[in-house]
Design a binder for these strands. Structure first.
Lengths: 222, 222, 222, 222
DNA sequence: TATGAATGAGTTTTCATTCAT
DNA sequence: CATGAATGAAAACTCATTCAT
C-alpha cells in the first residue's frame, strides 16, 4: 500500500543503465573523499542527473552501498566461469585464479572497495540489509570457499577452519586497496607476486626451529 | 582546525588520564555504532565528562582518531621489547611474535580497530594529519618490517617488495576484526592458527603443478 | 498557478467523469492520512490514473480542495429542493431539514469534510481562490441562512446576528466529523438526536435562576 | 541509552521559559500561515532563537502541536477553580461559565486553536502521541462533562449521549475560531450571545408543530 | 489525452563546535 | 578546568510540477 507509492521506474533497461551510471559516478567520487563526506547530491551530479533523481532509482543513501556490492561482485562473478574452466584440474590453481580476479576488481575500484569493505559491517547490523547483503556477497564467498573445500577433500589444501581461511585470503586481496592509509600504496602486480608467494608457502625459507608451535610463538605477550 | 588547543591544559597527568578515559569510552561506543553515527556528545558522556569538555583535551572529532591510533599502537609498542628479547635468534619467530601481539590488540578493540584502519585513509589525505600519522604508525610498521628485513638478510625469509609483505601481513592480522561484515566472525585463537599456518607455508600441501608460475595463475581472466 | 488549464480538456463529459474519479479517490486517501501527507501521485494512483495525469484536469494540488468543496456542496444542493418542498410551512423544520442533510453529507465523507473545513481558511487567504470559494460555498450558507431569516421575520426563530447563528449551526453539524481528535467518535444518529435537542431548546430543563442574563453568565471568570 | 543523548536541558525554569517563547511565537506565525506552510526555522526565528535551537527544547515539529495543546488547555485550567467556586449552585451556570472561559482562550489564539483542533486528529493516529494527547486534553473534556453530568443527575440538564453533547458544545465554542473559512469572521461577544441563547433554548420561539419529532425532522431527505 | 521520468526547490533535522559562566 | 546552552551550516530526502513522447 505504501510501498507502491515510490517511483519504481517501469522501464527496466533504463533503471539498469541509470544504476550503472550511478555506480561509476560513486566510484569517481569515492576516489576523492569518504562515503560520509560524499553527498548524495554530489554523486548524482557526478552521474549527470539531478540531485533528487537518485531517489527515483535508489531508496536512500545506503542503497548506494548495496549498488556497489552488487556491481563489484557482479564483475567478479562474470569472470568465474572462465576460471573454473581453465583450472579444472587443481583446486589450488583455481583458488589462486579467483584471488587474481578479485584482485583485479579491487584494483579497478580501490577506494570504492575499501569503502564497501568497511561500511558493510554497519549495513549488516541493520535488519533491513542483513539478508540482502548476505545474498549479494554469497558468490564471492563461495568462489573462495569451494576450491578450498575441494582442495582439502583431495588432500591438496590443509586448514581447519574454513571461515578463517576464507577471511584471511580475502584480507590478503583486500590489502591492495587498504594499504593507502596504514602502510603504503602498492602496485597490483608487485603485490600479487608477494601474496601468491605467501599462499604458496614461499615466505619462510624453511620450517622454524623445533619447539615454536603455531600456538606459542609469542610467549612473551600479555 | 588542528592547531594547538586553545586552552592548553597545564596539568599533564590530568590530560593523559582524561585522554585514556576518552579512548576507552570511544572504544565502547564504537562497539555499538560507526564513527560517523557516534556523536562527540555521546563519546563525552560515555567518558563521564560533559559534552563540551572534550574540546579541552582534543581539538576536534578527528583528533579522536589520532587518539585511537596512539593508544592502540602504544599498547603494541609496550609489548615489543619482550618479544624481541624472547626471539632474538630467529627473525621468523620474532615476526610471528609481533603478529601475535598485534592480533591481541586488534582482538581487544575489534570495532575500534576496524574504524581506525578505515578512517586513517581520509586522515592521511589531509595535510594537517599526514605527518603526525606517519610518525604514530611508524613503530607498528617497523615492528613488522625489521624482522622481515633481518630474515631476508640471513636468508630465512624470502620476498621482493617489503611494503607489499608488510601490508599483506598486516591485513592477515586485521582480518580478525574485519570479518564481521564481509564474511564471518572468527574467534581469535582459531584465526591465529590459520594465519600462522599460511605464513609458515602449510596451506598448500605441495608445490602446484609445473608451469603455473606466480605471475600467471589466472590466464583465463580479463 | 491557478490559471486556466494549459490543456483545456475538450471533452466535457470526460472531464466531469475524471473529476468524480479524483474526488472519490481523495476521499479514500484522506481516510488514511492528512491532506499534506497525501501526495498528488498517491491520489492519482488511487483514482486509477497516472501521476502526471491529474494535471490534465486540475491545475494544482490546491485545486483538489476546490474539487472537494464543489463535490460536497453539490451533494447537499441536490437534496435542497426536496427539503424546501417538504417543509414549506415551518422554517424551523426547514432549517432542521437542511442540517440533517448536511449531517448526511458530512457523515459520508467525515475525514474529507474535516480537511475541507480546515484548509478552506488558507485557500481563502489566497487572492486567487477567495472569489471562487465564496461562490462555491454560497448555496450551503444560504440554505441555512434563508430559513433562519424567514423564521425571524415570522417570529418563529430568535437571534440577533445572522452570521453567528449560521456559524454555530454549521459547527454543530461539523462536530460529527471533528470529534475524532478532540473528544470522541460519535455515531451519526446519536449525534443528530442531541444537536436537534439543543437547537430545539431542550438541553436546559428550565430557565437558569434569575439574574444570569445571556451576556453575563460567567461573571466569575477572567 | 539512546534517549539520554539528546540535549535535555538541565535548567527547568529555562526550559519552561523557552517553551513559552516558542508557544507565543508559533501563535504569531500561525496567524499568517498554516502549520504545514510554517517552517520550524521560521518559528524559531520568530521566537528569537536560532533555527536549530528549537530542537534543544522540542524533539520535532509535531512536538510544537503538543506544546500548543498544553499551553492552551493550561490557560483554561487556570481559570477553572474560579468558575467552580462562582457557580457552585447551578451546574447550568457552571457549564456556561466553562464555555465562556473556553471561548476566551479560543478568541485569544484563534488561528492557533483552529490548527490544534485539526492537527490533533493526525497526532492521535500516531501511537507515540495518543496517550499523552488524551492526558493533556482531559481537563478540558472534564470541565464540560462534569457539570453536564451533575446537571443531569439533578434533573436540570437533559441529554442522552454525553459524548455527543460535549462534542456539540465544544463545537459551538470552536465556531468562533473556525468561521474564517467556511462562513464569516465573528466578534467574540456577538458570537457568545448567540450560542448562549441556543444552549439556553431561546433559538426557537416555541416547540415546532406537532408531529415533527426529534428523529424525523427531515423526512424529505435522502 | 495520457504518461511517467526527471527535476530542484524547500524542509526537517543533526551535530561539531564555541563561549559565557 | 568544566560545563552545557546555543548556534548555524550542511545533509538526506520529498514531492508538486513539467514536458517529451
Amino acid at each position: 500500500m505504501t510501498e507502491a507509492l515510490r517511483n519504481p521506474v517501469a522501464d527496466d533497461a533504463l533503471a539498469r543503465a541509470r544504476k550503472r551510471q550511478i555506480f561509476l559516478a560513486v566510484t569517481r567520487v569515492l576516489a576523492r573523499k569518504s562515503f560520509h563526506e560524499a553527498t548524495v547530491r554530489e554523486i548524482a551530479l557526478e552521474a549527470g542527473i539531478a540531485a533528487g533523481s537518485i531517489y527515483v532509482y535508489l531508496t536512500g543513501k545506503n542503497e548506494i552501498l548495496m549498488l556497489i556490492a552488487e556491481s563489484m561482485v557482479g564483475e567478479l562473478t562474470d569472470a568465474l566461469p572462465a576460471i573454473r574452466a581453465g583450472h579444472a584440474i587443481d583446486p589450488r590453481d583455481e583458488l589462486l585464479g579467483v584471488m587474481h580476479v578479485a584482485l583485479g576488481v579491487i584494483d579497478r575500484y580501490r577506494e570504492t572497495f575499501a569503502v564497501l569493505n568497511h561500511e558493510v559491517r554497519y549495513l549488516e547490523q541493520r535488519q533491513e540489509y542483513r539478508g540482502r547483503l548476505k545474498e549479494v556477497l554469497q558468490p564471492y564467498k563461495s568462489a573462495l570457499a569451494e576450491p578450498l573445500e575441494r582442495g582439502r577433500a583431495r588432500g591438496l589444501i590443509r586448514f581447519d577452519d574454513l571461515y578463517s581461511v576464507v577471511e584471511a585470503l580475502h584480507m590478503l586481496c583486500s590489502g591492495l586497496a587498504m594499504g593507502a592509509g596504514m602502510l603504503a600504496k602498492t602496485d597490483k602486480e608487485t603485490y600479487w607476486r608477494e601474496i601468491v608467494a605467501i599462499v604458496r608457502g614461499h615466505l619462510f625459507a624453511a620450517e622454524t626451529a623445533g619447539g615454536t608451535g603455531a600456538d606459542s610463538p609469542a610467549r612473551g605477550d600479555a
